[in-house]
Each structure stands twice: as C-alpha cells, then as structure tokens.
Design a protein around this nucleic acid. Structure first.
Lengths: 274, 274
DNA sequence: GCTTGACTGGAACGTTCATTCCATTTCATC
DNA sequence: GATGAAATGGAATGAACGTTCCAGTCAAGC
C-alpha cells in the first residue's frame, strides 16, 4: 500500500474514505484536516490530547492509510508548511534590507509586495454579508451611476467597460464640459450609485455622491477609512487599504474588489432573470 | 535576559551580534538564517549534523541569546511557519471545493485569489534588466504617448494621472472625435510610447502603436503573450498574465506593473536631474 | 613560555517520544 | 441474547531526544 506523499492527495484520500473510517479514526481525520498545523508541530501525545483520542489511535490512523507510523504521516503535514511560499510581509521586510542597492528592480518588487499585502487584507476587511447586500442593491438598479475623480477615475472607466459587456446600463458621471450634475438629473431611487474616493477626497466626487443621495439613490462607496466623507451618505461602504510604496499606491486591491463586484452583479442578474 | 519572541527580531538580533559570536556559534547563526525550515522541523541531532556542529553547540547558541535551551529557540522558528498565511494556490483550491454553495462571497475570494496569483507571478516573469532598460528609455522621453483601448484603457488613464503628478509630459492617445492619429503627429524619436493591450487585441491600439513605431518612436508594451501583435513593433515588452476567475480578469497585476514603471520613471528622472 | 579564561567536543543523564501489545469494550450478525 | 470480529484504551517498552557536565583545546595577556 502506497500512502499519499503530498498534503493535497492525502486530503483527498481522507475525504474519500471518511465514510469507512471507524468512529475514533474519523475523529482523528476531522481533527487533522481542521488543524493541520497542530499535526505538523505537535507530538503524538499533545495531538492526541487535543483531539480527545489515545496516542495509539493516531498511530493506527496513520497505519490504516498505509503509513508506517504516525511520524510518516506527520512528515506530509510538515512538508506542506515547508513548501508554502514566503509572505508579502517577509518580502517587504527583505526588500527594506536591500533598498537602494538594486535600484529599479526593488521598486518593482516593492510595488508588487505592497499590492500583494493590500489584496491580502481585502479578504479580511470585506464582510461577506455586506458585500452580498451591496451587490443585490446594485443589481436591482435600472441605471448604475459611477462616481469618481482623479486617482480613482480609472476604476469607474474599468467598471463602465465591464458593465457594458454585462449589458448593464451605466452612467459614468464625468464630462469634459462640466455637465455632471445634468447627467445625474434623471436618477431616481430605482437606480443606484457606486462612488470611489480615497484620501485626499476629491470634493467633486463627494458633491456628486451627495446629489445622488439627496435624490434618494442608494449609494455604495469604496473608500479608505471610516472618516471618509462618503461614509455618511452611503447605504454600504467598503474599506480598501492600499499599502503604499514610497508614498505611491497602486490600485490593485481596489480593482480586485471592483472586478468582484461587477462579476457578482452580473451573476445576480443572471440568476434572478431566470 | 529576554530573548526575541518573534522570528523577525530574532533575525535582527543575530545579524547585530554576528560579529561577537565565537566561531561555532556564528556557524550555527548562519545556518539558522539560511535554513530556517530545517531548524523548525529538525531535531537537535539532525540539525547539528547538517550544520557540522555538535548538538551541545546548538543548545549553547540558544542559551547565549537568552533562551532556556534549544527547544525555546526552535519554538520561534516554528511560529514563523505557523503564522505564514496560506498561499493563493491553496485558497483557489479551497474555493473550487465550495464553489456554488456560498455565492457572492466566493466570487470575492475567487477574484482576490486570482489577483494574488497574478501579482505573484509578476515577480518571476518580469526580468529586472529589461525593466530597468525600459524605464531608462521612457524616462528620457520628452513626451510619453500612452496607447490603450477598451479593457486596458483604465491603465493609461491611471498612468496619465500618475505622470501628471510627477510632472512628466504625457499624451493620452484617445479622443472622442477620432483625431488620435493627429494627436500622434508631433511624435519624434525623442519621445517614447507605452502601449497596453491584451487578447483579443483591439485593432486600433495596434494601429496607433504601429504609427508611433513607424515615426521612430520607441515603443514599450504591456501585453499577455509573445504572440501579441504589439511584440513585433516594441523595443521592449512585458508579459503580464492575469489569472481569470470565471472568465473575468481583474487588472490588478497590470496596475501593479504600471505603478512600478511610473514610480521608477519618476525616480530615474529625479536622479538624473541632479 | 606560562597562565588564565573562553570555547569546544563528546560522553552521560534523565526525560519524553512513538510505538507495540494486550485486555476490554463495542457492535453487527445470527 | 449469544457469538465473533473489529475497535478501543491504556500500560509497557525501547529508542531518541534535549540537556548537562567535564575534560581537552585554543588564544590572548603578562
């Protein structure tokens, strides 16, 4: 019998055979998949205690899969941690050690690391519930008003493109002739708006969002802190913290969020149309 | 004496005191920083052998830093691995397991994971040398022509904003009146162009880039494969592979690269102006 | 060249480890 | 309810572990 040598196939093996495991072995299986780090670092005794099982059961579990003993099984869990790539924090750290020596290259990797951490933190700051509610709100709108200026403007041009492909009616609140207010004149509570602004908040973005909010249009905002002037006038708002590199922020995390919103709206509309 | 409790400060401590360590202890210090995984998982005996040192030396090393013994030191190395977040590959893997059940939330995390892997791969696909050369070329230009359409268009609007703040003259090749060719009429070999296009390549982007290349303007491209029509007419080109999620691609990695280029150009100009 | 103190190698120690083994319990089957 | 196989708990075991200790080595200071 040849036991799985990498974590992924071990995981699949366990999931496949979960039905046939006896009670205690299933208990171990569940604990192992839920606390892989514990298996990697602990001793048979410590793991057994935490899993409310005898140490001998751990050995039996390993042997029932085909390993020689518990230690063989543990090796798979250790390799998993070993092969995990380094985090962005470590990269930024390593970068600051060598900054200045390498020149352009370190600018690139610095921006990459900053973008990576920004995207990382997205998953923890965006609450699934709020995301879903916002998507539902935006999907219901007849026309979507997109409000942004200056640095955030590319986000709305991108969204306008995406929504165009998704056949969703949008109005990009932007005009070379200064007729933005007129563009918003037809907005009603049946519509919705998505506003994007980061510190220092462009005053026109806030003004436009306010006009829409006053007209009863629900506003969803993407901004960078609870102190943003957009927060007060928004039904929902998302906090995106773009890490900077030398004072410059990329829009990577904002784009990831915007893309997700657009896809989710498309999906929501597709589902509800049926 | 209070020893460092996290890996980063331990690393700094070792680097600071590397001079004062006796020969064998320095040997351990170097090995520890170069093979942190080995320290985390190995036994005192196995590590000692690989580092060509006696096990007792490992204990002495730990004690000289302030730890009670080798095991205390090892705990720091283990925590480092424990706290390392999961990789995007694992997240995408986990996502595909549960896709469909969670709905909107999995769209968000899917896009986040896709954006993360895209950014990850940037650092391996962009060659530092080519990046630096391209930056030098672009920094030398009198006017920077920015060429992009459709999905890539937001990248150039963002770059136009960044370059504006950096006080670098740019011409966004884009017009609601169709006078793009006229916008490029003044371009000479003293200028440079940055073109962005992904499959399916907008024909006007390629046309505009060709016009500039014919006028002797050096063109740098951001695109997605060696088969891109932009490759042939470019002095240098960068490959950005945006991972898709359900057929949709965010522009996260492209924006990270664009930001890095803009910052590097600004830095290059600042340095050469002195 | 001798002395002194720090450093090092390696054996010895008690502890903890994974594993094995066996008595007991559990559960399906008749 | 009886029977037997499978599963389980827990003590026993020997190997491996981290640590300590001491004798030997080295280099600096006088």
């Amino acid at each position: 019998m040849k036991p799985p040598r990498d974590f992924q196939s071990l995981k699949n093996f366990i999931l496949d055979h979960n039905e046939t495991f006896p009670k205690r072995l299933r208990q171990v299986a569940v604990f192992a998949l839920e606390n892989p780090d514990e298996i990697a670092f602990g001793t048979a005794a410590s793991i057994a205690e935490r899993a409310a099982v005898q140490p001998s059961t751990l050995v039996r579990f390993a042997q029932s899969i085909g390993y020689g003993g518990f230690s063989d099984l543990q090796a798979v869990f250790r390799d998993r941690l070993r092969e995990r790539g380094s985090t962005y924090e470590e990269r930024l750290e390593a970068l600051s050690d060598t900054f200045g020596r390498e020149g352009g290259n370190s600018i690139l990797s610095g921006v990459i690391a900053a973008a990576g951490t920004s995207i990382d933190s997205l998953s923890s700051t965006i609450r699934a519930e709020e995301f879903n509610e916002s998507v539902r709100l935006l999907a219901r709108a007849e026309t979507l008003y997109l409000v942004a200026q200056r640095r955030s403007f590319p986000v709305t041009t991108y969204l306008a493109y995406m929504f165009g492909k998704l056949k969703i009616r949008t109005q990009l609140v932007s005009s070379p002739f200064g007729v933005e207010v007129e563009q918003m004149a037809f907005a009603t509570k049946k519509d919705a708006a998505l506003a994007v602004s980061f510190s220092p908040y462009a005053s026109s973005t806030v003004d436009h969002a306010q006009v829409l909010a006053d007209a009863g249009v629900p506003v969803i905002s993407i901004t960078d802190s609870a102190f943003s002037p957009l927060v007060g006038l928004s039904k929902h708002w998302f906090e995106v913290t773009e890490n900077d590199f030398g004072g410059f922020r990329s829009l990577s995390a904002t784009f990831a969020l915007a893309t997700a919103i657009a896809i989710a709206i498309g999906e929501e509309r597709r589902v509800s149309r049926k």
